[in-house]
């Protein structure tokens, strides 16, 4: 019997060598990767070309000209300003609000769990559809929010159609959709914190505000950082909400990077400028995502270590 086990060597006709196996398993995913890397490099090339879909005969390499032009291009600076304002406002408010709600719901009670699940519904709504919902609610004719505004004396409040309130409106939609994201991550973070420091502080009668600043916040930092960076990266690239709400208008009030690039490509058919804009956005997100991934990995390892 025991000799038999040794001698029945190659049972299968096809055998994979140990070294090749992992590559073979990840090959399909890798090929998909490469399929995505090709258009990426094409985009790099486009950004270095004078390339308009409407004038294909005039296409030529102009190297850094698209980028150089940005320096004296007020539209570019507007895009940068609008994108950064949007990212700063949305993430800032969402962080404060998300942290506040997480603290409110920190205790594991049936009611709190129910509320936290309910609050996830906006996050599960497609951002484009969320914009549509808010569009219906801010319609000057019958929108419930326009009606509420008129109740507090703001007659003819035009929300996204008014240049002075357009940013406020899309930021509001972003907050509605994404605050639950920060809330749920911080809630998981708060609930995973070790209890001893808090019990010790309670025993010693340490003031709660002090506990919050000196114990809760420092211990929550990895979660805060991960959630914030994640949101900044997404927010600076926001497209769905703004495009669905106003298509970048009114005027150039909301022409954030991706919206501006989209309009450049499909309306002005200026492929070169569009690609150059996206490259700059990519450079920003690349730096941010590198910082993010470092934090995220540390958090991931820590959480896995505990499990």
């Amino acid at each position: 019997m025991s000799d038999a086990t040794m001698n029945q060597k190659p049972r299968r006709g096809f055998r994979v060598s140990r070294g090749a196996l992992p590559y073979l398993l990840s090959l399909p995913a890798l090929l998909t990767c490469i399929g995505i890397l090709v258009p990426f490099f094409t985009a790099v090339a486009y950004s270095l070309q004078r390339y308009r879909l409407s004038q294909p005969w005039a296409r030529k390499w102009n190297w850094g000209e698209n980028y150089l032009n940005f320096l004296s291009d007020p539209a570019f600076w507007n895009t940068l300003k609008v994108s950064l304002t949007y990212a700063f406002l949305t993430v800032g408010i969402e962080l404060l609000l998300g942290l506040g709600i997480a603290l409110l719901l920190q205790k594991r009670t049936r009611f709190n769990n129910f509320v936290s699940i309910m609050l996830l519904m906006p996050l599960m709504t497609a951002p484009a559809l969320a914009s549509l919902m808010w569009k219906l609610m801010t319609n000057p004719g019958f929108g419930i929010l326009s009606y509420f505004a008129s109740l507090i004396g703001l007659h003819d409040f035009r929300w996204a159609s008014d240049p002075s309130t357009a940013m406020l409106t899309v930021v509001l939609v972003d907050i509605w959709v994404y605050t639950p994201f920060i809330m749920i991550l911080l809630l998981a973070g708060l609930r995973s914190l070790p209890q001893q420091p808090f019990e010790a502080a309670a025993l010693d009668g340490v003031p709660r505000l002090f506990v919050f600043w000196r114990i809760t916040l420092p211990m929550l930092t990895p979660f805060l950082l991960t959630a914030t960076l994640f949101r900044v990266i997404e927010s600076i690239q926001q497209f769905d909400i703004i495009y669905a709400m106003t298509q970048g208008g009114p005027g150039d009030k909301l022409t954030v990077f991706q919206v501006e690039a989209y309009l450049n490509f499909f309306q002005s058919t200026n492929v070169g400028r569009s690609a150059a804009l996206l490259m700059i956005l990519w450079a920003i997100t690349y730096i941010l995502s590198n910082i993010f991934i470092k934090n995220w990995l540390r958090l991931r390892e820590r959480q896995r270590g505990e499990a």
Partner: peptide, 12 residues
């Protein structure tokens, strides 16, 4: 018999 490259399942 040298076990170099012999898979665990084939070592008996």
């Amino acid at each position: 018999a040298d076990m170099d490259g012999v898979e665990p399942e084939d070592r008996g």
